[in-house]
């Protein structure tokens, strides 16, 4: 029973983990992306289309990466270049994606297909034999392992590379970063695109690990849970894993509690509320979190200081100097 809670808890937290990875990076760079739910929906829809048309969960997962980047460019254009209000834009973007995916789904994706093509669990020899945590942690689908790998890599990215340094600088003090020669808009735009790729993978995860199909509103608010998880994790990709587990594990626990019928005097609606209540409670109880100082505030690049195009190319130039200088 405990084992079942762990196994399905990890499955339930997985999309939130990816979405939170993205959101943590985005917010550290100073962009509050409320639209993460919409990005997840787009990723889920895109991967469901690929899964249905071409088959194979790997292809479906890969497809969510360019799709996430494209969505990120749109959002980046709004947030960073146009400088629209980030909260309003994010909320509207969520509605837009819900409407768009619903319409496209009804037009092209309905009809019942054989549900198949999700990632099967891959057991890691020896480790999966550990009682209790073995099956939960080491006999899971490949995206679980990818997430475990991604957490330290993203941590290093934010702490040990020029990109992470610049991102945190423009997130905390954009004017200071600007004066010291960092192209604020360029770094922020790159962070939004990268964040949307990660969140889009989170959406695709729903399809390629859970259902093998898209359903209307499949993300069911998980993007918003990710916003809370990021605060709880203090914008640290490593802490995202335990923070998301609070939600995933209580969700898995409540299903177990409901069907086991113990404490049957508790109405099942109360059980269903538990994961949300627990997440809010943990956020409230934890020490007051300090958002990055520049988070949510648009920083207009001073005119004539450096061309916007040059700024946007800056991150690319650093990655591949030969091609972009």
């Amino acid at each position: 029973m405990t084992e079942a809670i762990l196994v399905s808890g990890i499955l339930l937290m997985l999309p939130i983990v990816w979405a939170s990875f993205g959101e943590a990076i985005c917010e550290q760079a100073g962009v509050l992306n409320i639209g993460v739910e919409g990005v997840m929906l787009a990723g889920a829809f895109g991967s469901a289309v690929v899964l249905r048309e071409f088959g194979g969960p790997w292809l479906a997962l890969w497809a969510s990466i360019p799709l996430g980047a494209a969505v990120g460019c749109v959002l980046g254009w709004f947030y960073v270049i146009r400088g629209t209000d980030q909260i309003v834009t994010g909320i509207l973007f969520n509605f837009l994606m819900l409407g768009l995916t619903t319409v496209l789904y009804e037009k092209y994706l309905t009809g019942v297909a054989q549900s198949a093509g999700v990632f099967d669990p891959v057991a890691i020899p020896l480790l999966s034999d550990i009682p209790l945590i073995g099956p939960a942690l080491f006999d899971q689908n490949v995206i679980v392992y990818l997430a475990t790998l991604a957490a330290p890599l993203l941590f290093l990215l934010m702490r040990r590379t020029w990109f992470g340094l610049h991102a945190r600088a423009v997130g905390e003090r954009p004017e200071a970063a600007d004066v010291s020669g960092v192209g604020v808009s360029g770094v922020r735009f790159a962070a939004v695109v990268f964040a949307c790729v990660l969140s889009s993978i989170g959406g695709a995860t729903l399809v390629v690990t859970q259902s093998g199909q898209f359903t209307i509103g499949i993300t069911s608010g998980q993007g918003f849970i990710a916003l809370a998880v990021v605060v709880l994790a203090r914008w640290n990709p490593l802490l995202v894993l335990p923070a998301a587990a609070v939600f995933g594990m209580t969700q898995a626990f409540q299903f177990q509690a409901q069907s086991a019928g113990f404490a049957s005097s508790v109405p099942f609606e109360a059980w269903a509320l538990l994961p949300y209540v627990a997440t809010i409670a943990v956020v409230v109880a934890s020490k007051r979190a300090q958002y990055p100082a520049g988070c949510g505030i648009h920083y207009p690049s001073p005119a004539g200081h450096r061309g916007l195009t040059q700024q946007l190319l800056e991150p690319l130039r650093r990655v591949a100097p030969a091609r972009f200088s």
């Binding site: 339930l12 859970q210 259902s211 499949i218 969700q251 299903f255």
Partner: peptide, 8 residues
């Protein structure tokens, strides 16, 4: 319609 909840 939420398959993740159905599965859990």
């Amino acid at each position: 319609s939420d398959p993740a909840k159905g599965r859990a």
